[in-house]
Amino acid sequence: MEEQETLKKVFGNVFFTASRTDGNAFLYAQWFGVQSVETVKEGGYKLLDMMEEQSCPKLLNSNKEVIGSWDMALEWAETEWAPRMRAAGLRYLAQVVPSSIYATLTIETLIQHIDHTFEIRTFEEDADAEAWLLSLG
């Protein structure tokens, strides 16, 4: 993997990392802990920056370590982030769901609203999501 982008909260806790796999096979984003509108937007904009820097049709978005719901950012993700990621070249979105039922419900709601924008699959493990993305050629 290439250089990793890391975003931290005010007190230094990492809430988001993103990297581009070798050969630009896919972007790999990981989210950690409790998310807010601000952290969701900051991480989302970082992914947009990475896409605009070098387009990539595949994103592995791992929410495995997310705690709680982030539904307060759903409208932004649906109306701004998803269309801009599509315009920048994203076509396939592998969502790794967390063990938190509230975060999982938020992801399921988002998918219902943006599944016309990307081909989306959900997974319980990053390795399965990666295998699906790599199988797309």
Results as ranks from 00 to 15, higher is better:
G137S: 10
E38D: 07
N13W: 11
Q95D: 07
C56W: 14
H116V: 03
E3D: 11
W76I: 07
W70R: 10
K8I: 07
I111L: 08
G44N: 06
S19N: 13
K58D: 03
E3P: 02
V97G: 01
R84E: 07
A127T: 15
Q30R: 15
E38R: 01
E38S: 04
A103N: 11
F11G: 05
G68P: 15
W132K: 09
V37Q: 05
I120S: 15
M1R: 12
A131G: 12
A103D: 11
W31K: 07
W70T: 05
A73W: 01
D128Q: 11
R86V: 13
V66D: 01
M50V: 06
I67Y: 02
A94K: 06
A87E: 15
A18F: 04
A29Y: 00
K64W: 05
L134V: 13
Q4M: 08
F16Q: 07
K46T: 14
R86C: 07
Q35Y: 01
A25D: 12
Y28L: 08
D22C: 02
G68L: 03
M72V: 05
G137N: 14
Y28P: 00
T106N: 08
L59Q: 03
L105C: 04
F15E: 04
K58E: 02
N61E: 12
E53C: 01
A77F: 02
F123K: 05
E124L: 04
E124R: 06
E38L: 01
Q4F: 00
E38N: 05
F118H: 11
E124C: 01
V10G: 04
R121A: 08
M85P: 15
I101L: 10
Y92G: 11
L60A: 07
D128A: 12
M1N: 14
H116F: 04
T104D: 03
T106S: 15
H113F: 04
T39E: 09
L60N: 03
Q30Y: 05
G44T: 05
K58T: 01
A131V: 10
R86S: 13
Y28G: 01
L47Q: 09
M50D: 06
R86E: 13
K9C: 04
E52R: 13
T17M: 00
L90S: 09
L133W: 04
H113V: 10
D71C: 06
A77G: 15
Y45D: 02
S100E: 05
K8S: 13
